[in-house]
Design a protein around this nucleic acid. Structure first.
Lengths: 172, 172
DNA sequence: CTTCATGTTTCGCGCCGATGAAGGGCCAGG
DNA sequence: CCTGGCCCTTCATCGGCGCGAAACATGAAG
């Protein structure tokens, strides 16, 4: 993602918008004006006048931080069962689509088997291990997107990106 | 924790040391010298000459970040037995979940064996050394998160982060 | 209607985690 | 030394869950 330069204070509204959208930004602060302070690591400021090199230096650090926090991207699903992440996508059949919505609803948090069963089969769950089978398939479909469904034994399942998260990146 | 000011490049060694110890620091960079770049959020730099206010502003932001990162070091457990710390997590089985709640309730303070036994087995403890066994297992599960359960002989146990605390990081 | 493709459910086996029981080892204090 | 407190390993049991295979359902195409 591109680091934006924002003039302060005349572009205050734009700064607010960028903050809301978690866009990395470098605030340019003229002499005699107090800089806007935040502990947000995606924001930095620089006192004007400043050299091109100094501006570039601060931009570069912000870019690095974006990269570092980039694995926090959340996947998105549309009403047609198209799941997108990172420019890649897969299409999900009805049941898996509904399961996915439930998992996405609580991204990175546990969703109980019961909740998944309700989501996937609003009319009532047909069989006992239907859910297992669909989880297996969903896992396989999700793998190419770098997404993983973790088992939290006797609690439910949790969706996260395959790389981060679970200290014991295995099910159980 | 105090934010340190470091002169660059003459205090390069000191900077390295502070980085190693994760001490927040503001690097003072004279004119004509390239600043040391890092994506470490506990480090910032400022071009000299700079006003007292600007220095103070950057120091304040670093202080805020320390506070924020301290919070992040505090483990959290949810109702599903998911213990999170630093972006990592492990899931805890029922008994260990209950023990963990008790330990977390008194984070960094001693919890007696009796209290733990009550927490883990509200109906009454099944066997004499069941608690020992579960403490061992809990320790193993917690290690990847950087958490440690210390023994306070004949008093109980205490939960803390693995790095800090106990001078005799292991008891027997 | 028949066929084919796609999605769904059932079956059944097998693994692995959760738990408690037992037993041996280590260490500090008396 | 001896004893109490704690650590840790090993076993056995039980049930949840993973997953391959195959039967079954549905809908579009021919």
């Amino acid at each position: 993602m591109q680091v934006e330069q924002v003039r302060w204070p005349i572009e205050e509204d734009r700064l607010s918008a960028l903050r809301r959208e978690s866009v990395p930004r470098l605030v340019m602060v003229p002499e005699g004006v107090a800089p806007p302070l935040t502990s947000d690591v995606l924001e930095d400021w620089i006192r004007l006048p400043a050299s091109e090199e100094d501006i570039r230096s601060r931009m570069r650090v912000l870019e690095d931080r974006v990269r570092a926090s980039d694995d926090r991207r959340a996947p998105e699903i549309d009403e047609n069962g198209l799941l997108r992440m990172d420019g890649l996508w897969v299409s999900l059949p009805p049941v898996e689509h509904r399961l996915m919505i439930a998992l996405l609803d609580r991204y990175r948090a546990v969703v109980s088997r019961e909740a998944l069963a309700r989501a996937g089969w609003p009319e009532g769950i047909p069989g006992r291990n239907v859910l297992d089978v669909h989880i297996v398939r969903l896992r396989r479909r999700l793998a190419p997107l770098g997404l993983a469904i973790r088992t939290v034994r006797s609690r439910g399942y949790l969706l996260e990106d395959g790389a981060s998260g679970s200290a014991a990146a295995r099910t159980g």
